[in-house]
């Protein structure tokens, strides 16, 4: 579900680490409810930008507004209205499914009764009420990632950031995961997602491709394929990354 309302505004974002420019004058807007794909080769500057958008790191210069809050001066407010999950860190292996839900619900300030109600809804929607008391470490990665996503949106955030959420997951689970993303998007939650699977890039409403810390392409998948005269986003990506290596 896309709208005209800008939920993330990034203008001339620069982030330097010493002499190294990780983000070089980034400019893009993300609209409420859209699925926004953020692509780039390893080292293109994606993680640096996501950390800034999540309020975990301050930009060196530029204007960054996330859900109405300024990334310079109001990072704590940003953290409250977003959700986050990544491939590397999602849930605590040595807590049970329910304990994880309770922990994250509590961190985001849900009341006991809200947590109870929403965790039941969540387990039923994923059709796994019997996994409630199992240790996270003992359930398959695919389930873990689906749960992690559902927990990341448990507090009904305005935006959820997904950093390579489907890495290493089988093709069926990957698709189930995207169906969850789509449902969340329909409820108005904005999805900001990175992936190395180029077929997943095609599932996004719009995509932004970074290389060398700069925005090299931004638009709907169809538009980009036309602009780059390519058949797939994989080809678009390859053209951009190749160019990057030659310079």
């Amino acid at each position: 579900m896309e709208s005209d309302r800008i939920i993330i505004e990034v203008k001339d974002l620069v982030k330097k680490f010493g002499w190294f420019v990780a983000n070089d004058q980034l400019c893009f807007n993300v609209y409420q409810g859209e699925v926004f794909g953020f692509l780039g080769a390893n080292g293109a500057g994606k993680t640096t930008a996501i950390r800034i958008l999540c309020g975990l790191s301050k930009p060196t210069s530029g204007r960054v507004i996330v859900a109405g809050f300024d990334a310079f001066s109001q990072p704590e407010k940003i953290k409250k209205v977003i959700g986050y999950m990544s491939q590397r860190f999602s849930l605590y292996d040595d807590l049970t499914v329910y304990e994880n839900i309770r922990l994250f619900g509590g961190i985001y300030g849900l009341t006991r009764s809200e947590i109870k109600k929403r965790s039941e809804e969540l387990l039923n929607r994923l059709e796994i009420p019997d996994l409630r008391d199992r240790l996270i470490g003992s359930i398959p990665l695919g389930w873990k990632q689906k749960l992690a996503f559902s927990i990341a949106v448990l507090h009904k955030p305005k935006i959820v950031f997904l950093d390579e959420p489907t890495g290493g997951v089988d093709p069926i689970t990957r698709r189930q995961f995207w169906e969850l993303i789509y449902e969340a998007s329909k409820q108005g939650i904005t999805i900001f997602v990175t992936t190395h699977y180029m077929d997943e890039a095609e599932y996004c409403d719009r995509i932004c491709i970074l290389a060398e810390g700069k925005v090299k392409a931004l638009g709907k998948p169809d538009q980009l394929k036309k602009t780059f005269n390519a058949e797939t986003i994989d080809d678009v990506f390859y053209q951009i990354a190749r160019e990057d290596k030659q310079t």
Partner: peptide, 13 residues
């Protein structure tokens, strides 16, 4: 064992 998990599309090629 899964040498390319988490690796971008160009590096995988």
């Amino acid at each position: 064992d899964e040498p390319t998990t988490g690796v971008d599309a160009v590096s995988r090629r």
